[in-house]
Design a protein around this nucleic acid. Structure first.
Lengths: 230, 230
DNA sequence: CCAAAAGTGTTCAGTATACACCCATGG
DNA sequence: CCATGGGTGTATACTGAACACTTTTGG
């Protein structure tokens, strides 16, 4: 995170670097992989966008700081959260020496309730394909997060965090396709997913749509689990 | 790292956490995967062992801090280094609020020249199978590093950092076996390694040993490269 | 009856695994 | 000649990839 976010942060010289967290919140919005961003207000970064985050308090660890900032800025809790990388370039924040422990999270779009606050000009989900001008090294953080997410979904079940409790196999497949940025073969994908035993079919189907109803499925286990998915 | 390491560090209360690096230096000693540890001198941790590391200065980033501490404590440079995880539990260091950005490195045993310094009682390589009593959360850091190393060698060529420039295929295989903790099939291993084109055979063999001489090989590319090795 | 998404198997190629004997050297 | 590690090939099972048509519903 960046001192810019914290108006109440003392602007004196520090003997040592201070620690903040920055969080890449991924979600799928309109079939696009998107991230939550905040628009900065103060010069010289007015109009640039930044990841949600903030300082780590002396009475909390980084995971707790992430949970707190997620609650404050996106009003979201209980989503998949994983530490990503620690960025420590000396000049990454022009306002002072701030080391950022970055995280990425996955949330279904309907769990995110961005809170506008007077500290920022705006808050919005942006598709990765059209990111606005980003502050600090946040572009690099997002790139790192995307690359980690892409490899992670190949060997774990973490996509459960991006989907509603009940979903169709087509929704599941398209989640994979959006993240990986390439199409997958329908028959091979279904065969593989079903053979892994990670999902169970519910005795219900979609209805009211102008095409054949689809069987609904749910993850048997909504905990991070390893499996060779792709 | 731990304030304990830095006698010159002021023992006052900090407004914020301070940042240190801790480094797991892996090497192979007597066919055992080992780590470099320092024996602490001061109460209440006298006799406990700790990873090399130290504070991050305000004029350096974490990578530079790691290089500096490696140079000071193990007199080693130019080895494979990778950021591992950031540990931030509030009580991980009883002397103060220190967040540790941990790293792991790989070095051939003959590149390590541990320096005894008056600050520590001892410095030594310890096989992972018989670790001494460790200070702070360093046991957890080592466990995390081992687990990362094990998965990393399956899909990259990083073991080149543990081997001398020239090596036999048996040496290479036994490096894998020591890290993974399980035996590998000799014929399948050789077939796979040679088919990947990561190593080239030199026109030289071992000599002077009481058995058939072995062909010497070298890595074509001593840079981290991806490949499905296992 | 048209549009739209759901659902379903087989073939082929490539890769992983299991497995045992002879070779070259020093002592 | 013995001990020690070096070096080699084949058969089988499994997995990943390619590929096209029929079904069910709403409008």
């Amino acid at each position: 995170m960046c001192m810019q976010h914290k108006l109440d942060y003392p602007q004196k010289q520090f003997e040592h670097a201070i620690v903040a967290v920055d969080v890449v919140i991924f979600t799928i919005l309109d079939s696009q992989l998107s991230v939550l961003l905040l628009e900065l207000k103060e010069a010289p970064l007015t109009g640039k966008w930044a990841l949600p985050g903030g300082l780590v308090r002396v009475d909390e660890d980084c995971d707790q700081a992430v949970a707190r900032h997620l609650q404050e800025k996106a009003n979201v809790s209980d989503i998949y959260t994983e530490q990503l990388f620690t960025f420590s370039a000396i000049d990454r924040d022009p306002h002072g020496r701030v080391i950022s422990v970055s995280y990425f999270t996955l949330a279904p779009q309907d769990k995110l309730h961005p809170q506008t606050t007077p500290r920022y000009q705006g808050i919005a989900l942006h598709p990765l394909s059209r990111l606005p001008d980003l502050a600090y090294d946040h572009r690099q953080i997002i790139d790192t997060a995307l690359s980690r997410l892409r490899s992670k979904i190949e060997y774990t079940n973490v996509v459960y965090s991006l989907l509603p409790k009940e979903f169709t196999l087509t929704q599941l497949q398209s989640t994979y396709e959006v993240i990986l940025g390439r199409p997958l073969d329908k028959r091979n994908f279904r065969k593989k997913i079903l053979s892994l035993g990670l999902v169970k079919s519910l005795d219900r189907t979609t209805a009211g749509l102008a095409h054949r109803p689809a069987q609904l499925y749910a993850f048997i286990n909504r905990k991070p689990t390893f499996a060779n998915i792709l």
